[in-house]
């Protein structure tokens, strides 16, 4: 086990293993996303209050979930990078940021598309929406901060610090609907109680969430390979690689 772990820490071995892993994430991701889309749009029954409008949940909730999951993963990697000076951890944090930012944007945009017909507004400054917007700015800040340094190692450390500080926003997003009056409704799926959704609706949502997770894994692995290469440039093992690949 430890031997395997150490081997994984070696860039050439990691680069190769990661490349082999991608299809194992990507193929099930596509299958689940297609299944979830068909199920969510065509098979799941429409809602008693919102009719077919509620179907936006199948793209909105998984995006929100990934936006927050991606941030926590990035912050943990950043902390490991800062404490143990692990290049691979910094590379992972750098790979997470743009993907997390994209899903945060998707969460806000699909939420807006849901809010207009149901609530009557595209946007309002309630606790959930504002804290989610802050998350987007945190992601963009982390990306910009890393880019602002000429020295990549310094950029990594500065971005890591911002990522770690920003993690306080995550519980704020999660609990905003419980702590304050908000326009956004409380959580439908929570660990402590049964989900407030019937199984014929919930099943497709869970399939979608797993599909999104695998999609994230596939794209983050692809980006991670790029980040490893950038951090290892000049190394001997790269000579063997084909830039046309």
């Amino acid at each position: 086990m430890w031997l395997w772990f150490h081997k994984l820490g070696s860039p050439p071995y990691f680069y190769r293993t990661a490349g082999r892993l991608i299809p194992w994430f990507a193929i099930p991701a596509v299958l689940l996303l297609v299944a979830g889309t068909v199920g969510g749009l065509a098979i799941a029954p429409s809602d008693y209050e919102q009719g077919d409008g509620f179907r936006i949940i199948y793209v909105h909730v998984p995006s929100a979930y990934l936006a927050m999951f991606g941030y926590v993963a990035m912050a943990i990697a950043a902390a490991i990078g800062l404490i143990w000076r692990m290049k691979l951890a910094f590379a992972f944090a750098a790979a997470c940021a743009p993907i997390g930012a994209a899903f945060t944007f998707l969460c806000l945009a699909t939420g807006s598309l849901w809010g207009k017909p149901m609530w009557g507004v595209w946007w309002d400054w309630d606790g959930r929406m504002t804290s989610m917007l802050v998350l987007l700015f945190l992601y963009l800040g982390v990306i910009a901060l890393r880019g602002a340094f000429d020295d990549a190692a310094k950029g990594d450390r500065a971005a890591a610090l911002l990522a770690i500080v920003g993690v306080v926003n995550i519980p704020i997003i999660k609990f905003s609907v419980d702590w304050w009056n908000t326009l956004h409704q409380p959580a439908t799926i929570s660990k402590l109680s049964a989900p407030s959704m019937t199984m014929d609706m919930l099943g497709w949502l869970l399939i979608m969430i797993v599909g999104y997770m695998l999609f994230f894994a596939a794209v983050v692995t692809l980006r991670l390979r790029g980040e490893v290469l950038l951090r290892e440039r000049g190394a001997r093992w790269i000579r063997g690689l084909d830039s046309r690949a």
């Binding site: 029954p45 429409s46 809602d47 008693y48 209050e49 919102q50 509620f54 949940i57 149901m118 609530w119 009557g120 507004v121 309002d124 326009l183 409704q185 409380p186 959580a187 439908t188 407030s196 959704m197 019937t198 014929d200 609706m201």
Partner: peptide, 18 residues
Amino acid sequence: ENLMAKHDENYMPPEVAQ
């Protein structure tokens, strides 16, 4: 000047609601 509807976190088919 502005009116927004709020809905809860429960989703179910109309038959179940009935």
